[in-house]
C-alpha cells in the first residue's frame, strides 16, 4: 500500500516537473526543472528495483546533463545581447 502511494507520488512529480520544463520562461529554471525530472526518474527506477539504472540516471541525467545545460546557457547570449 505504502509502495503504491510512493509510486503515485513519484509519477505525479514526474508529470509535474516535465510540465514545468515546458512552462518555465527562464532557461536556467527550465534546466533545474529538468534536473528534478531526472532525479525523480532515478527514484522511480530505484522503486522498480533497478539500482544500476538508478545510479546511472542520477549521475548522467541529474548531474552531467544539467551541468551541460547550465554551462551552455552561461556561454550563450540573451536577446538583449548581454551574456548571462
Amino acid at each position: 500500500m505504502i509502495e503504491l502511494l510512493v509510486h503515485i507520488l513519484l509519477l505525479a512529480g514526474l508529470v509535474i516537473s516535465a510540465f514545468m520544463v515546458w512552462h518555465m520562461d527562464d532557461l536556467i529554471s527550465a534546466a533545474i526543472a529538468f534536473g528534478a525530472f531526472s532525479f525523480l526518474l532515478s527514484l522511480e527506477f530505484l522503486m522498480l528495483q533497478a539500482p544500476d539504472v538508478a545510479i546511472a540516471e542520477a549521475g548522467i541525467g541529474a548531474g552531467l546533463t544539467t551541468a551541460i545545460f547550465v554551462i551552455a546557457i552561461r556561454g550563450t547570449e540573451k536577446d538583449g545581447g548581454a551574456s548571462e
Binding site: D52, I55, A56, A58, G59, I60, G63, L64
Partner: peptide, 11 residues
C-alpha cells in the same frame, strides 16, 4: 556508473 558519479564531482 561510478565514472559518471566521479565526473559529476569534476562538473
Amino acid at each position: 556508473q561510478g565514472g559518471a558519479v566521479i565526473a559529476t564531482a569534476v562538473v
